[in-house]
Design a protein around this nucleic acid. Sequence first.
DNA 1: CGACTGTCGAGTGTCGACAGTTTGAAATTT
DNA 2: AAATTTCAAACTGTCGACACTCGACAGTCG
Lengths: 227, 227
Amino acid sequence: MTTTTRGFATIQQRDLVNQIADMLTEALLKGDFAPGAHLAEAQLARDFGVSRAPVREAARLLESRGMLVSQPRRGFFVRTFNAAELVDVYDLRLCLERHAIRSLAGRLTGEMETALNGQLDTMRRVAREGTAVQQIEEDVAFHRMLCEFSGNQRLVRVFDELCHEMRFCILLIGQLYDDPMRVADTHEPIIEALRTQDPEACEAALNYHIGVAQQRVVEMFREREQE
Amino acid sequence: MTTTTRGFATIQQRDLVNQIADMLTEALLKGDFAPGAHLAEAQLARDFGVSRAPVREAARLLESRGMLVSQPRRGFFVRTFNAAELVDVYDLRLCLERHAIRSLAGRLTGEMETALNGQLDTMRRVAREGTAVQQIEEDVAFHRMLCEFSGNQRLVRVFDELCHEMRFCILLIGQLYDDPMRVADTHEPIIEALRTQDPEACEAALNYHIGVAQQRVVEMFREREQE
DNA sequence: CGACTGTCGAGTGTCGACAGTTTGAAATTT
DNA sequence: AAATTTCAAACTGTCGACACTCGACAGTCG
C-alpha cells in the first residue's frame, strides 16, 4: 500500500475485474466449486451483482493462472489436475530454482542471507501459531526469494505462475502433507549450502528438498485420486 | 466494409478472437505499430469491422503472451523491451533447455535422434532457400523439440511463451543476427553431445550455443537502442 | 509570468440485449 | 426397456450504448 506525500492511502479503486478475480480465487481455494465444474458467466454475474463482461475478464485471468480452463462455446471449467501434471509442475519448479540457486552460489550477499534467515524465522513462527494457508504462503515466499535473488525477473514471473498452480493443488488435497515445523527445518540445509559457496552442494540440497516435497504431494494426490 | 483505414483484410464470422489475435500478432511482428504505441480498442474494432469485445479479448491474449502491456483506464500498449529484459529471456531459456537436455542425456532414443537430425536438415534447407521468418521458426522448432523430449509439458508451455517474446524481439531488431547456415551448423554439437550420453557435455554444448545467441541478440539490440 | 482551474475530446469500463449454439430431458420410436 | 429424436431452457459470443476517467489545452487569477 503506497502512500502520498501527505500520508493518504492511494485510492486505487480496484476495478471490478480484480475484485471478482480475487473472490473467485478465494472460492476456488476454499473448494466451493468441484474440480471440473462448469462456471456459468451469467450465474456468476448475478451472484456478484455485475454484468457478464467483468466476470468474463476475471475468468480469463484465472485461466491464464491455470486455475480455470475454457472450451470454445462451452465456457469455463475448474481446472483438474492429474498426478502427471503435478509431477511436471514440481519438476519445472526444480528447474527454475536450481537455475536461481546456481547463479546465486558464490555471490550471496550478507543482506540476502539475513533475509533468508528472517524468512526461516517467520516460517517457524507460523508453523507454531499460523494457519495452514499462512504456512504454505511463507514456504512459497522463501523459495520466491531464491528466485528473486537470481536477478532474473522473468524467471520470477514464471515461478509465480507455478505457485498459483501449486497452491491450488495443495489446497485441493485438503490438508497439509507434513508437519509444518519440520518443513521449515528442511530449508536450513539450503541456506547452509549457499553459505559454502559450492554450486554442487546448493543443487544437491535443493534437489533433495524439492524432491521430497514432490514425492509427498504427488503421493497424497494419488490417494485422493482413487475416488 | 471490406477495406479499413489500416488495410486489414476482412474476417469471417468464426473464432473472431483468435483471428484478431493472429492478425494483430502479424501486424506487430511486421512492425506496423511502433514500440510503446497505444492501441485504441475502438479504432481496432472499426479496422476489423467488429465490436470492441473480441478486440479486447484478443488484446488480453497478446498481453498474456508478453507482446502487449495494459494500464488500467489507459488501455493497451505495444510491449517495449530493454536489454536487461532480453538478457532475462535468454537466461530463462537456457534454464529450461538445460533442464530438458539434462534429463534427456542417457535416454535419447533413436527416434529422437532421427527427429533432431531431420530438423537440422530442414534448418539447412530454409537457410538456403527460406525467408528470415522461416529460419527463425525452424530454429525455434529445434529447441522446442529438446523441451518436448524432456517429457515435461508444463516446461514446453513456458518455452512457447518465451518464444513469443524472442520472436518479437528478434523481428524488432529488424534483421537476422547471423548467417543462417552457420546458425544451423552450430546445432550439430548439441546432437553430438547428446549422443555421448554425457550430461556435462550436453550442458556445455547448450551453454555455449545459447550464450552465443544471447550475446549476439543483446548486442544488436543495444545498438538499436541508441536512437 | 507562473500556477491553478475548467472544459473538451478521446478512450476505457461496464452494461443490457440479441442470435446462434449446446445441453439435458421429455417425447417418440424400435 | 433401450435407443433415438425433438425441443425448450440455458449459455456463450458478439454487439451497440452510456457513464466515467484521463490528458491536453486554453483561460483565469494571483
